[in-house]
Lab assay of single mutants.
Amino acid sequence: TELRLDINGREIKVDGADKETLKELLKLAEKNNDEKAIRIIRHLLER
Rank of each mutant, 00 (worst) to 15 (best):
V14H: 02
E2I: 12
E11G: 02
I7H: 05
G16H: 09
H43Q: 11
I38S: 06
L44W: 15
R10Q: 15
I40G: 02
V14T: 03
L44Y: 14
G16R: 13
L25E: 01
K13F: 15
L45F: 03
K31G: 08
I7N: 03
I12G: 02
L28V: 11
A17Q: 10
R4G: 06
E46K: 10
I41G: 00
R42P: 00
I41K: 00
K13T: 13
E30I: 12
G16N: 10
D34M: 04
E2K: 04
R4Q: 11
E20V: 10
R47Y: 15
E24K: 13
V14L: 10
H43M: 14
D15P: 04
D15L: 09
K27V: 12
N8I: 04
K19G: 06
E35L: 14
R4L: 15
E30C: 07
K27R: 11
D18L: 03
K31S: 11
T21H: 09
D18I: 03
R4V: 15
D6Y: 15
L28Y: 10
E2M: 11
L22E: 00
A29R: 00
E24H: 11
N8Y: 05
I38A: 11
T21V: 08
V14E: 02
L28P: 00
A29Q: 00
K31D: 13
I41Q: 00
L25Q: 01
N32S: 14
L22W: 02
T21Y: 09
A37V: 06
R4M: 14
R10N: 13
R10P: 07
I12T: 05
R42G: 05
K27M: 11
I38K: 04
E46S: 08
I41F: 02
L22N: 00
K36L: 11
K19T: 14
K19Q: 13
T21P: 01
E2C: 12
R4I: 15
I40M: 07
T1N: 13
L45I: 09
D15A: 08
E24L: 12
N32M: 14
V14D: 02
E11D: 08
D18N: 09
G9I: 03
K23I: 08
L5I: 14
L3K: 02
E24Y: 15
L22C: 00
L28T: 05
K23D: 05
A37Q: 03
H43Y: 14
T21S: 11
E2P: 06
R47G: 15
K13D: 12
E11L: 09
R39P: 03
L3N: 05
A17R: 11
R42V: 11
V14Q: 01
E11K: 05
L22P: 00
L5C: 05
D6M: 15
T1D: 13
H43G: 10
D34W: 08
I7M: 06
D34Q: 04
N33M: 09
L22A: 00
I38G: 03
D18E: 04
K13C: 07
R39Q: 13
D6W: 15
L44R: 02
L28Q: 10
L28G: 02
K23S: 08
L44D: 00
K27G: 07
L26W: 03
R47I: 14
R4S: 13
K13P: 07
D34N: 07
E35Y: 12
D15G: 06
L44Q: 06
L44G: 01
L44M: 09
K36E: 12
E35R: 09
I38C: 14
I12N: 02
D6H: 15
G9W: 06
I38Y: 06
I40Q: 05
T21R: 10
N32D: 11
L44V: 06
K13I: 15
L5K: 03
A29L: 04
E24M: 14
L25S: 01
G9K: 01
N8V: 04
T1A: 10
E24W: 10
L44F: 14
E46R: 06
E35M: 12
H43L: 14
E11A: 03
I41C: 00
I12L: 05
L28K: 03
K27T: 07
I38D: 01
A29P: 00
L3C: 04
D18V: 03
A37H: 02
H43F: 13
A29S: 03
L45D: 00
E20K: 10
A37W: 04
A17F: 09
K31M: 13
N8H: 03
I38M: 10
K13G: 06
R4F: 14
G9F: 04
R47T: 15
G9N: 05
I41P: 00
L25V: 04
I40L: 10
K31R: 12
R42T: 13
D34A: 07
E35F: 11
L22T: 00
L26F: 04
L26Y: 05
I7L: 12
G16D: 08
E24A: 13
D6N: 15
K36D: 10
D34I: 03
E2D: 12
K19W: 04
K19H: 09
I7A: 03
R39H: 10
E46T: 08
L3G: 05
L5E: 04
R42H: 11
L26P: 00
N8M: 11
